[in-house]
Amino acid sequence: MTALGFLYPGHSAEDDYPRIEQLLGSDIRVELVHTDLGEDAHRLDALRELGSPERLAVGVQELRHAGADAVVWASTSGGFVHGWDGARAQVRALAQAAGLPASSTSLAFVHAVQELGVHRVAVGATYPEDVASLFAEFLRAADLDVVAVKSAGTVGAAEAGTWGEPELLALARAADHPDAQALLLPDNALHTAAHITDLEKELGKPVLTANQVTVWEALRLADRRVNAPELGRLFTREPIVQV
């Protein structure tokens, strides 16, 4: 049995996680601990506070007691708003506090793109333009080519959590670009687990979503590989062999 631990801020799309757990198989257990959301706002100051060490530390012991094999900070914006170096420092502090391998959704997006073996990506973000631009900068700092960014301008997680498939499809279509080899949809407040294959069929390319890559990252940290076609191309390919 492999136990995957997640620190998830507030309550918006946490039901994606039991759905994903069902698709992964009986020997994978998902453990999710809610952290304090604080002010629900897609503003830089609120997002930087969201992932403070004090907030994350509160849930770490609960995940350790649950027997988690790895822990992932399940907030895209709560990572990348600290920049490339800051996001990595955040994860190092989390790993030290947990005594476990650790990562974050922001870093998971980078690792997932690398796993797919692509380089040019488009971004469809629920965030306001200034926050969406920071995510693009974060990806570029990881040597990815961001060819297009579309901002939907939602005010916070509660609003994004109300979105269904029609809104997701509309954002995906608006954000996609002919040169993009994959589309990224950040924001862990979005319900996406039930829609990934439909999105990929619509666009004809891999689609990476926040909760999807978060779980994939935890599996990577736990040295597990699971074939789950319902979760998109990321969960159906063999790993890239580095030479």
Rank of each mutant, 00 (worst) to 15 (best):
A97F: 03
A97P: 08
A98S: 07
A98Q: 07
A98P: 05
L100Q: 10
L100S: 11
P101C: 09
A102W: 04
S103M: 10
S104G: 14
T105M: 13
L107D: 03
A108N: 00
A108T: 05
F109E: 02
F109Y: 00
V110Q: 02
H111V: 01
A112N: 02
A112I: 06
A112D: 05
A112R: 03
V113M: 04
Q114V: 02
E115L: 11
E115R: 12
E115W: 03
L116W: 04
L116Y: 02
H119R: 15
V121T: 03
V123D: 07
G124C: 03
G124D: 08
A125V: 03
Y127D: 10
P128D: 07
E129T: 13
E129D: 15
D130H: 14
V131W: 06
A132V: 04
A132C: 11
A132Q: 01
S133Y: 03
S133I: 00
L134R: 15
L134K: 13
L134E: 13
L134A: 08
L134H: 12
F135H: 15
F135W: 03
F135N: 03
A136G: 14
E137D: 15
E137M: 03
E137K: 12
F138A: 11
F138W: 06
F138R: 12
R140D: 02
R140V: 14
A141S: 15
A141D: 14
A142E: 11
D143Q: 15
D143H: 13
L144Y: 11
D145S: 14
V146F: 04
V146N: 15
A148W: 00
A148H: 15
V149A: 09
S151T: 13
T154E: 12
T154K: 09
V155E: 12
V155H: 09
A157Q: 01
A157V: 00
A158S: 10
E159V: 14
E159K: 01
W163C: 09
W163Y: 13
G164L: 06
E165D: 06
E165K: 10
E165M: 08
E167R: 11
L168E: 04
L168H: 03
L169W: 06
A170E: 14
A170Q: 14
L171W: 07
A172G: 00
A172V: 07
A172M: 01
R173A: 12
R173L: 15
R173N: 08
A174I: 08
A174K: 08
A174M: 04
A175R: 09
A175H: 09
D176R: 02
D176S: 15
D179R: 14
Q181P: 06
Q181T: 05
Q181I: 10
A182H: 12
L183K: 01
L183P: 01
L183M: 04
L183Y: 05
L184W: 06
L184C: 07
P186S: 10
P186N: 00
D187G: 08
L190S: 08
H191Y: 10
T192I: 11
T192V: 12
A193E: 03
A193R: 04
A194V: 11
A194G: 09
A194M: 12
A194I: 02
H195K: 05
H195D: 13
I196C: 02
I196M: 01
I196R: 02
T197P: 01
T197D: 04
L199V: 04
E200C: 02
E200S: 07
E200F: 10
K201A: 15
K201N: 11
E202G: 00
E202S: 13
E202C: 09
E202H: 13
L203W: 03
K205L: 07
K205M: 05
P206S: 07
V207D: 02
